[in-house]
């Protein structure tokens, strides 16, 4: 197999079309409205009940980051999970795949299109967080950018998983449900089983690595551990029994995210290349 400059140009054309497809679709509107509503609720609800978002930039951001991984999973479910399967299900492959274009160029274009769109949505959410932080605390914490970096890695990894499922399934609706359930339920259950029944720490699981989106903000750790201490006191147990959270091991986080991205995208590519109409 050889690679030409034209292959990248064609991938760019496919990626542009992929982004346009999503932006003009209902899924994008649903996602944009949902994200805006979530942001507005986190921002204004505390004031409505006489509270506030905090005093320091870190405290302000801590309010928002807990929802970021769910927003990313939702984005992967709505966009990446249908990227491949829709071409077969909706028969648009009969136009695109019969043109002089390598399947790899189509694959790369679709992956890049999904990741760019999802990243833009998440960056906009973080931009909102930064504006809120500026408005409430007068500055933006550098930890916000660390969290954003981890969030980007998570976008790539979950998109890889979603695109793999999309490459092997036949129906878009099933693919979306499977992606959402896998990322939100099955992976955490597996992690919980591993940590509960064995002595192995499941740091290599995607859901565990995604905790770094929140735990990269020290004020978030303080907030959660404070709540855990309070709960432990009420239950008469030690806070350690409830599992206090600590600062993330960034090396392990990055390795996990990259590992899941590389493996899932490689499997997705193989499945896509072998798939016939």
């Amino acid at each position: 197999m050889y690679i030409e400059l034209d292959d990248f140009r064609q991938s760019y054309v496919v990626a542009k079309n992929e982004i346009r497809k999503f932006v003009r679709g209902k899924r994008f509107t649903i996602y944009a409205v949902l994200t805006t509503v979530v942001f507005a609720l986190i921002t204004f609800l505390p004031y409505l009940f006489g509270g506030d978002l905090g005093d320091t930039p870190g405290e302000v951001i801590a309010n928002y980051v807990s929802i970021v991984d769910l927003l990313i999973i939702l984005a992967a479910t709505l966009f990446a999970s249908v990227a491949i399967v829709s071409e077969f299900e909706e028969r648009t492959a009969l136009i695109l795949f019969t043109r002089p274009i390598k399947k790899t160029s189509i694959f790369v274009g679709k992956v890049v299109g999904c990741i760019v769109l999802e990243t833009v949505m998440i960056v906009l959410f973080y931009l909102g967080m930064a504006v809120a932080s500026l408005a409430v605390a007068g500055s933006v914490s550098a930890d916000l950018f660390v969290s954003l970096g981890v969030a980007f890695l998570f976008v790539v990894a979950v998109s890889g998983v979603a695109i793999f499922i999309s490459s092997v399934m036949k129906k878009g609706s099933t693919t979306a449900i499977l992606t959402f359930v896998l990322l939100l339920l099955i992976l955490p259950i597996i992690s919980s089983v591993i940590s509960g029944s064995t002595s192995v720490e499941p740091w290599f699981m995607l859901d565990q690595a995604s905790n770094a989106i929140q735990t990269s903000i020290p004020e978030y750790i303080d907030l959660v551990n404070g709540m855990l201490e309070h709960a432990a006191e009420m239950m008469g147990v030690s806070p350690e029994d409830l599992g206090v959270i600590t600062a993330p091991d960034m090396a392990k986080t990055i390795i996990t995210m990259l590992g899941w991205s590389i493996v899932s995208l490689s499997l997705a590519w193989v499945a896509f290349i072998r798939r016939e109409f």
């Binding site: 034209d6 140009r9 064609q10 054309v13 496919v14 079309n17 346009r20 497809k21 003009r24 679709g25 909706e90 028969r91 648009t92 009969l94 136009i95 695109l96 019969t98 043109r99 002089p100 274009i101």
Partner: peptide
């Protein structure tokens, strides 16, 4: 091939432009 479907969000002009861009 058979009865292909098009991206419903595109117009005929945009569809032909997309195909034209793909083929360079």
């Amino acid at each position: 091939v058979e009865t292909p479907e098009f991206y419903p969000y595109l117009t005929p002009r945009e569809t032909l432009r997309y195909v034209g861009q793909i083929i360079g």
